[in-house]
C-alpha cells in the first residue's frame, strides 16, 4: 500500500542561484560517479585480478626460467608491464558505467542540467583516474611483496605517475568514446579484450619490443601503451632507458622520455577531445 500526501505543497522561498565556477558542478558529478562506482565493487576489484595474477604468480615463475631481461629482474620488469594491462582494463570497465547511465541511469537529467555537458565526461574521467591510481598502488605493492625491486627516486616516481596518468586519460577517452558509439553493453564488453588486452602483448609488456618481428615492432612504436610503459620503466626500474632506446634509438634518456611522454599526451588530448565531442553530440539529437 503506497500512501501519498495529496495536500497542496506549502509555498517555498525561491532559493538564489549561483554559478560562480564550474568547480562545484564538476565536484558534484565526480562524487556522483564515485558513489556509483563504490556501489559496484566488482568494477574496482575485477580489473585488478589478471594484472595481479601476472605480477605475483606468472612473472616470478617465468623469472625462474628466463632470468633477467637486459639486467632487469623479470618479476620487476613484468610488474611494470602489468600496469599497462591494469589501466586499460580499469578504464574500459569504467566505460560500462557510461552505458548503464544511458540505458537506465540519470543521464538524461544530467543533460538537462544548466552545466556544460562536457563536465559529465570530466567527472567520469576524474574517478577513472583516481581508481586507476589506487589500483596501480595496490599492484605495485603486491609486486614488491612478491620480490620486485624498484628505484623510488622522486623524479622517477613522478615520471611513472605522469606516464600512468596520461595512459589512463588516453584509455578513458577511448572507453568513453566507444561507450557512446556502441548501442549495447554486450557489444561494448565484447570489444574490451581487443582494445584493452591485445595491444598489451605488443607493447613491450612481457618482453622488449625488439623481440618482435620488424613490422610488429614498428606497429608497437605507434601504440601509446608502448611509450607509457617505456617511460614508467625508465622512472622506476630501467635507469639506462633501454625501452625508450628501443623506440627512439637515441642516447639521451631525458629527451627520449620527453618525446614518449609527448606522444602519450598527444593521444590523451586527442582521445579526450574525441570523447567530449562524441558525448556532447550524442546528447543532442
Amino acid at each position: 500500500m503506497t500512501a501519498i500526501t495529496t495536500a497542496p505543497p506549502a509555498p517555498i522561498v525561491v532559493p538564489r542561484r549561483r554559478r560562480a565556477s564550474l568547480a562545484a558542478p564538476l565536484a558534484t558529478l565526480t562524487r556522483r560517479r564515485l558513489a556509483l562506482s563504490a556501489r559496484t565493487p566488482r568494477e574496482l576489484v575485477v580489473p585488478l585480478l589478471t594484472p595481479i595474477l601476472f605480477s605475483v604468480v606468472i612473472a616470478p615463475a617465468l623469472a625462474k626460467v628466463t632470468g633477467a631481461v637486459r639486467g632487469i629482474d623479470y618479476t620487476s620488469f613484468v610488474a611494470i608491464g602489468t600496469v599497462g594491462l591494469l589501466v586499460p582494463i580499469n578504464c574500459m570497465f569504467a566505460g560500462i558505467g557510461v552505458i548503464v547511465d544511458r540505458e537506465s541511469g540519470a543521464r538524461r537529467d544530467l543533460l538537462a542540467a544548466p552545466v556544460p555537458r562536457s563536465l559529465v565526461v570530466f567527472g567520469n574521467l576524474a574517478v577513472a583516474l583516481a581508481v586507476s591510481a589506487l589500483q596501480v598502488v595496490a599492484l605495485v605493492a603486491a609486486a614488491v611483496l612478491r620480490g620486485a625491486h624498484f628505484e623510488a627516486r622522486a623524479s622517477g616516481v613522478a615520471l611513472f605517475a605522469l606516464a600512468a596518468a596520461l595512459l589512463a586519460v588516453t584509455m578513458y577517452g577511448g572507453a568513453e568514446t566507444l561507450a557512446n558509439r556502441i548501442a549495447k553493453q554486450e557489444e561494448y564488453v565484447g570489444a574490451v579484450p581487443a582494445i584493452a588486452i591485445v595491444p598489451w602483448f605488443f607493447a613491450g609488456s612481457l618482453f622488449p619490443i625488439t623481440a618482435l618481428p620488424g613490422w610488429l615492432a614498428a606497429f608497437a612504436k605507434v601504440l601509446p601503451l608502448t611509450h607509457a610503459l617505456a617511460v614508467m620503466r625508465y622512472g622506476l626500474l630501467d635507469g639506462r632507458a633501454t625501452g625508450l632506446h628501443d623506440i627512439w634509438g637515441l642516447t639521451n634518456a631525458t629527451v627520449m622520455a620527453t618525446l614518449s611522454l609527448a606522444v602519450v599526451a598527444a593521444y590523451a588530448a586527442l582521445l579526450l577531445a574525441l570523447a567530449v565531442r562524441v558525448f556532447t553530440r550524442a546528447a543532442v539529437r
Binding site: 532559493p15 542561484r17 554559478r19 562545484a24 558534484t28 558529478l29 544530467l110
Partner: peptide
C-alpha cells in the same frame, strides 16, 4: 545531485 547541478548551495 540535482540541486547541486542546478546551482543550489
Amino acid at each position: 545531485i540535482h540541486g547541486r547541478l542546478w546551482g543550489l548551495s
